[in-house]
Simulated scan of single mutants.
Amino acid sequence: MGETDETVSEAPSGDVRGRILAAAAELIAAGGPDAATTRAVAGAADVQAPTIYRLFGDKRGLLDAVAAEVLGRYVAGKAAREPHADPVQDLRDGWDMHVEFGLTHPGLFAIMSGGTPGAASPAVAAGMEVLRARIRKIAEAGRLQVSEARAVGLTQAAGVGTVLTLLGQPEGARDLALSETAREAVIAAITRVAPAVAGDGARGAAAALRASLGDTSVLSGGERLLLEELLDRIANGEARRE
């Protein structure tokens, strides 16, 4: 162990960190998050356990770092992909990529889905921005029939739930059609078949106008906040508040 420790201490910290992340990722892929114990990771990466604590704080910090590393590459590729001309089809493609990632990386998906509520890693936050951008494109096309916030929340909740449900099924007997059914149910709930036109109803028009507010500078901050709230209520079909 003496020679190993000396080698590690002389190696650039980035090399050691990358080796630890790679070792932990392999263990998670083979046996899930529980397999990536500090001792197992240290052994696989040929470092001492204190090195892991120094770089990542604790096991949760290590697991979060592994998830962020892999998810970051996935999100970067997803964001760089040429979007489909039809924003609704682009959302479909994004959904399918999300489900494929979850089924391909079940251990990492479990880590990402089991974090502290409200505390998203930078990679997860970046993924949410990609989803928000897709929803915004649908709104700008006049094809969203709920508020953007509700559309994002529904899509995220249904997407995560779909992956977790499929991961809970035996791998050889997964009902993969469940994903398509859930996807189309979400799309039907948040979109309209064709772009909003005059006389086509207030909900789609409100969502489209809400998405376009960034193009105007004639409103004060307070006026914009009030208009955003009103448009969201119209888009979501909420009853008048007494």
Rank of each mutant, 00 (worst) to 15 (best):
G159S: 12
A139G: 15
L167V: 10
R134D: 00
A139P: 00
A151M: 10
S147L: 02
G172N: 15
A158T: 14
Q156Y: 13
A173W: 04
Q169C: 10
M128P: 00
V160P: 03
R136C: 03
A141W: 03
A149Q: 13
E140N: 06
A125F: 13
G172T: 13
T162K: 13
K137L: 05
A173T: 12
K137H: 12
V146L: 07
E148T: 00
R174H: 07
E140V: 13
A125N: 12
I138G: 02
G172S: 13
L131K: 13
L131Q: 14
A157M: 14
G127D: 11
A123F: 02
V124G: 11
E129C: 03
V152Q: 09
R174M: 06
R132K: 13
R150K: 09
R136P: 01
R132H: 11
R174K: 02
Q169N: 06
I138S: 04
I135M: 10
R174S: 05
G127I: 08
D175E: 14
L167A: 15
G172Q: 15
L164N: 05
V146F: 08
V146M: 10
G153V: 08
L154D: 12
L166I: 06
Q156A: 14
L131G: 10
R150G: 01
R134H: 13
L131F: 09
R150S: 08
A126I: 10
L167C: 11
A125W: 08
E148W: 00
A139L: 08
R134V: 02
P170Q: 05
E140P: 01
V130K: 03
A151V: 06
G127A: 10
G161R: 12
E140F: 00
I135Q: 01
A125I: 06
R132P: 00
G142Q: 01
A173Y: 12
L164V: 10
A126Q: 08
S147I: 04
M128F: 03
K137D: 15
E171W: 03
A173G: 04
G159H: 05
I138K: 06
A151N: 08
G172K: 13
R136V: 02
A151D: 11
V163Y: 06
T165I: 04
S147V: 03
R136G: 01
A151I: 11
A158Q: 09
L154G: 10
A141G: 02
S147G: 11
D175K: 02
A123Y: 02
G168P: 13
T155I: 09
A139Q: 07
E148C: 03
V163L: 09
Q156P: 01
V124Q: 15
A141M: 00
G127M: 14
V160W: 11
E171M: 10
Q156V: 06
T155A: 15
L166D: 03
I135C: 02
T162I: 08
I135P: 00
